[in-house]
Write a protein that binds this DNA or RNA. Sequence first.
RNA 1: GCGAACGUGGUGAAGUGGUUAACACAUCUGGCUGUGAACCAGACACUCGUGAGUUCGAUUCUCAUCGUUCGCCCCA
Length: 431
Amino acid sequence: MDIINNVKGTHDVFLDENNAYEMVESMMKSIAELYGYNGVRPPVLEYSQVFSRGVGESSDIVRKEMYTFLDKGGRELTLRPEFTAGIMRLVIQNKLYATNELPLKLYYNGPVFRYERPQLGRYRQFNQFGVESIGNNSPINDVEVIVLAYTILCSLGLEGVTLKINTLGDDVSRDNYRKALKEYFAKHIGNMCEDCKSRYELNPLRILDCKVSEDRPIIDKAPKIGDYLSEQSKLRFEDVKDALDTLQIPYEVDDGLVRGLDYYSETVFEFHYKSKTGANYGAIGAGGHYGKLMQELGGPEMPGVGFSFGIERIVSVLKDDSLLEDTKSSLDAYIMPLGSESLLFAEEVAVLLRNSGGYRVDLCFDKTKISNMFKRATNKGAKFGIIIGEDEINNESVILKKLDTQEQFTVKVDDLVNKLDELYDMEEGNK
RNA sequence: GCGAACGUGGUGAAGUGGUUAACACAUCUGGCUGUGAACCAGACACUCGUGAGUUCGAUUCUCAUCGUUCGCCCCA
């Protein structure tokens, strides 16, 4: 095994791509804060049961995708495959629900782990940003979460995002619907694919997700959730749609949308986006309402709603559509010392500009010809070049050159910060 | 987990059963001992993913393995 290889399904992030991640994450964070959310950082490790009970035994994630192991103390632990269950555990354990300020609004950001076959936009370790709004059952709260997610995607510059929504109904609706599906598929299941056969046993709702074309005609004629919704769930979904209309959020109702995590009920949604390259990343974000998750994990009866974004997919889509131009690294000034005698003086000037002036400054440590240093300055996105040689050291001055216009000034070191301030002000004035 | 394609330098990539592995960009050195270009002359693949096999000889053929990409499945 070659240790100079990253683990399958993981990836390194650096340089410009790292800037893109930082930009995306800080955009998401600041918009979540606009909506009144606070950050939480649950641990990566949880007892496996948090997920098997939270996410659900019948979900693929729990059945075959978790990184589960025994630690040296014999505890059965799992690297989180998603955040929601762990956050519910955090909320219950720390009694964050014991407040009169519900809903609790929490956002999170960090890596999650799923043992899947890697593919375009799909990793075994990837990053999710998401929110949970816990303790309020209003359909308007569902909608607010959707609006937040939609706002984030728009702010990142994505146009033409498709929002798909559906309702899974409450417990009564789901039980009735499940029964109806079982009854319907009982006659056909013999002719359907192997996956559907196991779904039939575990969770017949999942059959609706089947993509095998031979199965489609049977599935298309299957009972629809709409016909089994309780009055209450029906009204709730109407309220959700009305609120989205009022807030002018475009959406499509997709009654085949069921989601792969067992805790969802009532409203569920997904965001899809086709980048210009036509690459298919699947959903770039998804979420929904969950009615019983808190209780399931031993907390109080309290509903919640949340979503999560796949950071990798969003960064890829932004890159495909060239929406990352302004995330390139840049410098205010690049210092070019001529000859090794100038290096210490150059460092002094750099420290002065950075600490007193607040400018982003780098300098050339290599002894190389000046034409090379200019090239490096440009490559690093520097606005100014600063040349320091023997004459400058003797005069306590530097040559300051604006790289785009090629204007050039000889400036005393003591005046350098002021001069840069002045030049930046002038530029502001010109705009 | 199933099916398929691919894996040559920092990058994009040609190529052949036989020993100098094209070409281009980038980088570096010198021509030009203090100003970003152009030009000229040079440099740059310790294992052609890794391991084994066939062969007098393999980067080229075979197998395995790892990885990437695509479809299925699933999901963010």
